[in-house]
Nucleic acid binder design. Structure first.
Lengths: 218, 218
DNA sequence: TGTAATGTTTACCAATCGGTCAAATTATCT
DNA sequence: AGATAATTTGACCGATTGGTAAACATTACA
């Protein structure tokens, strides 16, 4: 008889690692498109290429699968913000933060959509992570930005809304990909759109945050 | 016996108007949170305070309800962009576009989330609207912006990505409301957060788009 | 008021949902 | 090889899903 799954933390077989990986990969496919409520275990099982009871052998419930997925992805997702360096040059830090976030939107759109779906639907499963670790990290980095502004290195601005605007503009290209493609048109959109976006956003944020010698009267 | 619903377009009773309104209101509540797949007719029926078969008397299918909702909301949603005036002053046009979009995020968050859910999930029901009317409108306004840049009224920039960035930053406050609240904290967040956002975004976009006399070397 | 059209509800359906169970199969270790 | 533990699956369960049928109630209008 199989060992109860709760006790499985002791030894991990080769198969366990492989299959759990395979399942989470499939779950990411499904959850990122349909959200938690809209996704079914059967869908995930089909994508994963295994039977439903087999999935439930590795993850007892649909919620456990979603949970494991979120936990694994959340850490990586905050990496760019964590790399934000207080000692660095403000302009290049902001510039490379935008680049990194945009690269993640390009290379890991499913992960972005997974969070977007979750937050959009009221974040019923990750409220604690948002109010805890996320808030803490943002608070910390906001203080860095505020210090830069106080030191006259960048224009005075609300650091929280600055972070929000970088999040939203970059993730937009993952979360609203269909819309972006539709508006740009299939033709010229190609793959240059991330390069174009990077150029635009860097210009916007750098010029928007540089202290300007004189305020032109319009 | 009831008239087949297909033929109901002829005469509309008082009750039809009221009930359809009531249903769409409830549907907005539910669809905007759970998306199409994640929402159930029973949920909507409960919110609407009527029985499930009664809903299905007015809208034959769940899809028809969603469809009607999207159609009604889409027009209003694009109003601010439509108001974008080629003859106006660039700075004040952009400023008031941001304001308008931010007001909509504040006053109609459900509508924003309805679209966000739909687009996020691949826009299976509104692909035509995106590629048709939406693209057309954006193309038109992008040309206005490009003309402003050519005339030296604003800095040169990709007009499409400018529009995308205004969309994403403003709608962020509706779509990711939970996250924004979590990060800002319940205490000081209050209701001033839309005012703060407006201030920040206006500064960002206006300063980011103003032509600067000299590029400071950092 | 009567009656035909409109509106509402109860009971129900087949399909799908998340999840269980026990039996069958495979991997691991001696 | 054989025993034991780990893995996989088909059959199944009760609850929920989108949707229907038909009886019942209400409204509008002559």
């Amino acid at each position: 008889m199989a060992i109860p799954r709760a006790a499985r933390t002791q030894r991990r077989t080769r198969i366990q690692g492989e299959k759990e990986e395979q399942i989470l990969e499939a779950a990411l496919d499904v959850f990122s498109v349909s959200g938690f409520r809209g996704s079914t275990i059967d869908q995930i099982a089909e994508v994963a290429g295994m039977s439903k009871p087999n999935l439930l052998y590795y993850f007892r419930t649909k919620e456990a699968m979603h949970r494991a997925l979120i936990d694994r992805v959340l850490f990586t997702w905050l990496e760019p913000l964590r790399a934000f360096d207080a000692e660095g040059n403000p302009e290049s830090e902001i510039r490379s933060y935008i680049r990194r976030k945009l690269e993640m939107a390009r290379d890991f759109p499913r992960e972005s959509r997974l969070f977007a779906n979750e937050v959009l639907q009221g974040a019923p499963h990750i409220e604690d992570e948002l109010k805890g670790p996320l808030k803490q990290l943002v608070d910390e980095k906001a203080e860095v930005i505020r210090a830069w502004a106080r030191a006259g290195k960048i224009a005075k601005c609300d650091p929280y809304h600055l972070i929000f605007s970088i999040w939203s503009t970059t993730q937009h290209y993952a979360d609203f990909d269909v819309q972006v493609r539709a508006v740009l048109g299939q033709g010229q959109a190609g793959e240059g759109r991330f390069e174009d976006a990077a150029r635009f956003l860097e210009q916007l944020f750098i010029d928007g945050l540089t202290i300007r010698p004189s305020q032109p009267t319009s």
